[in-house]
Structures are given as C-alpha cells and as structure tokens.
Amino acid sequence: MNKKFTAVRLTCAFLIAFIITVAIIFSISEEPMTAISNLFLGPLQSKRYFFQVFASAVPIIFTGLALGLVFKSGNFSMIADASLYTGGVVAAAIAILLPMPMIIHPIFIFIAAAIIGGVIGSIPAILKVKFKANELVTSLMFNYVFFYIGIYIVNTFFVDRQAGTFASLKYSPTATLGNMISGTPLHFGFVIAVAVVIFLYILLYKTKFGYEIRISGSNPEFAKYSGINTSKVIILTQVIAGAVAGLGGAVEQLGMYQRFNWQDSPSYAWDGVIIAILSGNNPKFVPFAAFFLAYIRVGADLMSRRSDVQNELVSIVQAVLILFITAERFMAGWKQRQEAKKALKEEA
C-alpha cells in the first residue's frame, strides 16, 4: 500500500509540475510548441546533447550524494556549496601552479580537493557539537565566507589579466580529464561519480557506521541510548559529505573547463537538495534523480536558445517538485479513501 501510495504521489507531483510548466510556456511564449518540444525532447535530438545530459548530471550527483548523506543523519547543513566551490578553486590552483605527470596530476588534485572539502564540511558540524550552533545557520553564512576566499585566491595567485572577464590561467593539460566518448562533453568524471555512488551505498547500507548514521537520523533518542556516539556521527557524516562535494567541484573543473571562471557560486548544492529528496536520500537512486534534473536542464538550455522562453523556468519546476514531493499530507485524502475502500471490501 505504502509503495503504491508513494508512486501515485510522485506521479501526481510530476504531473502538477508538468502542467504548471506547460501553462507558463503557453501564457508567455509566442512559439509555445517550439519551446515545449525543445524542453522535453531536445536532449534526444543528437548524440552530443544526449551525452551533455550525462555530463551535466556529474556535479549534481556529487552534491545530491553529499546532501542525501547529511539529511540521512538527521542534520541540515548546506556547506556542500562551500566545499564544492573551494574544491574547484583547489583543483584550479594545483592544475595551474603545480606541474605533475599525467594521471598522477588529477589524482593528486582529487585527493587534495576532497580533503579540503571535508575540512570545510567539518566546521559547521564541530560548531554544532561543541557550541550547539545550528549547522544550517552557520553553513549558510560560511558559504559566503568561502566563496569570497575562493575569489580572493584566484584573483591573487592565478588570474589571467589578459582575459576580458574573470578567469584563471589555463589548466595544465596533464590535469584535465579526457572525454569518454569523443565529440561529446562526457568526461571520465562520470566514472568517478558512479564510483562514489557505490562507495556511499556500501558505507550507508553495508557497514556498522552506516547503520549508526541511519539510526541517528531516524531516531536520535534511541541512537543516544543505544550507545551510538552521535557527535562522532554528526561530524564524520559532514566531513564525508564535504569531501564528496569538494571532489565534485574538482571533477567538474577538470572535466568541463580549461580555466576557472566561476564568478558566482554555481547552484549545484541547491540542486543537490532536490536530488536528495527525489532519491529518498538513498545513494542508489541519486544518479537517476540527477539524470532527470540534468535532462530538464539541457532541454531548458536548448529551449532558451531556440525559443523565447528562458531556462530559469527550471527553477520554478524544481520548486514545485520539492514542495509537492515532500508534502506529507499531499494526497493523504486519496490514501484514506483507498484504504477505506479496501477495508470495506474485506468486510464484504
């Protein structure tokens, strides 16, 4: 019953989001059919666009995993944003300033970015454990702090003054990730993302520590009385989440860019929220949720290039989906009626 109910609810949430999207497009566009066909079918039009979806899914797989892990432990830190951005800066710094041989270069970068991402991730967690400071509040503000520090580092040590806009010097070719399928933007970062998915799935569902995380999240009182060190769980999950996000920032930089040009912090961490929710905080489902969002994103980019509807439409769709999927009582009436019907049938 519950599984069926979840499926029906998800379908309804998607339907509502779909109807709202179509309604908005029809009310503002002069070429609504072009817009709609590009939004929903655009990515299927060519091999390039299709693999663009996979490439766009990579950074949000990382943030989806990071946020899912934090949510699973019952905490609510948005520090993945800072970890990801700083991970990207670290990647840029090492890719430009430290010459190294092929293969070793990106591996060294990934390790460094993950460590620094993890350190950043630990800060709100430590403030929470030590001083009871709400991790959501502190992480939201640390995001700004680390964003400005990142900009400062790029600006001071390896900015390209010849470039017209904000951009770093070019990365050493030994550092950048190769394309998996030539002629498409899909790079080997995708493999790393899948490896992290598997790692986190095993960690969460096949280890003792994963069990502790899940118990702390679902029943914190019980966790405390059964002797689980909840402080350790809080800090370690956020360190791992930060490391995953930091790694994601580095992978994205080395896979998709030749130089660092994130003038604003990318919204990947916020996208991670919807991915965590869609996947039910289960790493197994994160790639699918990320693929869905990336598909819509690529479609929306095509739509805004080829019609008069802008790609910011996606964030409206995203918000509607989050709101309806997490609404506990959404469709509760339907569930009740179904249950009543079933009960009546059994009686008869």
Partner: peptide
C-alpha cells in the same frame, strides 16, 4: 500539507532565485 518547513523554504528560495530572473527577463 505537513511539509518540512526547512525544505519548503529551500524550495521557495530556489523558486525566487530563478523565478525573479525569469520574470525580469
């Protein structure tokens, strides 16, 4: 609908950051 207040808030913030640009355009 008994949603989590924090997550609903994040949804509204997502809506606002993209939606305001959408309308401005």
């Amino acid at each position: 609908l008994k949603s989590n207040a924090v997550i609903s808030g994040i949804a509204i913030n997502t809506f606002a950051s993209g939606g305001t640009i959408f309308v401005l355009y």
